[in-house]
Structure formats: structure tokens, C-alpha cells
């Protein structure tokens, strides 16, 4: 087994074990911190696949942003009595059926699919690290519509968040 295979299985293992831990732990906070490991593992796999930029974006957005927000939410809403934050388990059977079914569909599709036959996969066999310039240019030319739409969507979300959070409390002009 060469080094790259070992590295791949290392990151895949981290992702898998932490994801399973999230499933089976009942402590929300442990789950949130295990989610960090999952994100890091996935970022490692991205680097392994030559997509450095996506990997770093994954860390920046998910670990630095969303995960912190989740933990913050749990802390601000639940800590007060000093007991641990546990989640009960509901509808085990239905959950198992839906989850298992989804897994089966995905598994079947991935096994059946012939990825080598897709033109944009077979046309891109070079393994050199992604050129950042190329990525930026493609983003601002071929995919500019999607890019701008996402930008506007984020702006709307931002304004919505400010509208929901602010404006209800009267500002006290003199803090003393």
C-alpha cells in the first residue's frame, strides 16, 4: 500500500467514524464537535482529489462559520440548568427504512454508473493541481449567472437575518 492510498483511507476513516459517532451519540454538543472532524476529513479528501480551493472553502465556510454558529446556538439556548443537552430518539423504524432506502438507491446508482463514459470526466484526466486563475475566470465567465444569483441570494438572507434580529429592541443611548 503506497502513501497516497494510506492517506486516502485515513481521511475516509476520519469522515466515516465521526459521521457514525454523530449518528449514535445523544449529546448534541459532542455531535457538533464530531461534525468538525467530518468536515475536516472531507476537506482532506478534497485535497487528495486535487481540489485545494474547495477544501479550504469547506473549512472556512463549514468549520469556521456554520459549525461555530451551531455550537453557539446550542450554548445560548440550552446551557442554563447545567445539565447535559441530550436528544431523545423518535421513530426508529421509519428512520431506518428511509435512511436505508436512500443508501440503497445511492449505492445502486454509483455501482451501476459508468463514470468513465461521461465526456467531462474522461476529458479531464490530468492530475495537476487546479489553477486558481482558471477557476476564477471560469467562475466569472461560464458560470457568472449562477455566481451572481448565489450572491444575491446571500444578500437577501443577510438582510432577512438583520430584519429578524434587529429593530425590536430600543437602543439605550447612554450606557451608563
Amino acid at each position: 500500500m503506497d502513501l497516497s492510498t494510506f492517506v486516502f483511507y485515513f481521511f475516509a476513516g476520519i469522515t466515516l467514524v465521526s459521521a457514525l459517532f454523530i449518528l449514535f451519540t445523544r449529546n448534541i454538543l459532542y455531535a457538533a464537535f464530531a461534525l468538525m472532524l467530518t468536515f475536516l476529513g472531507v476537506a482532506g479528501i478534497f485535497v487528495f482529489a486535487g481540489a485545494e480551493f474547495i477544501a479550504i472553502t469547506q473549512i472556512l465556510v463549514y468549520v469556521g462559520g456554520i459549525l461555530v454558529l451551531i455550537v453557539f446556538g446550542v450554548m445560548l439556548t440550552n446551557r442554563l440548568q447545567g445539565q447535559k443537552v441530550l436528544t431523545p430518539v423518535y421513530r426508529k423504524l421509519m428512520g431506518l427504512i428511509v435512511g436505508g432506502g436512500l443508501f440503497l438507491i445511492l449505492f445502486k446508482a454509483i455501482v451501476e454508473a459508468n463514470f468513465g463514459a461521461i465526456t467531462w470526466v474522461s476529458g479531464n484526466t490530468q492530475t495537476e493541481p487546479t489553477s486558481l486563475k482558471k477557476l476564477g475566470l471560469t467562475l466569472m465567465t461560464d458560470y457568472v449567472l449562477a455566481f451572481e444569483v448565489i450572491g444575491i441570494l446571500l444578500l437577501i438572507a443577510l438582510i432577512g437575518a438583520i430584519h429578524m434580529a434587529g429593530g425590536k429592541r430600543k437602543e439605550v443611548s447612554d450606557a451608563s
Binding site: I56, I59, V63, G65, V68
Partner: peptide, 8 residues
């Protein structure tokens, strides 16, 4: 990105 990890 990596600096923001210390928040966690």
C-alpha cells in the same frame, strides 16, 4: 481558514 479553527 485554518486560523478560524481556533474558535472551535
Amino acid at each position: 481558514a485554518i486560523i478560524s479553527l481556533d474558535v472551535v
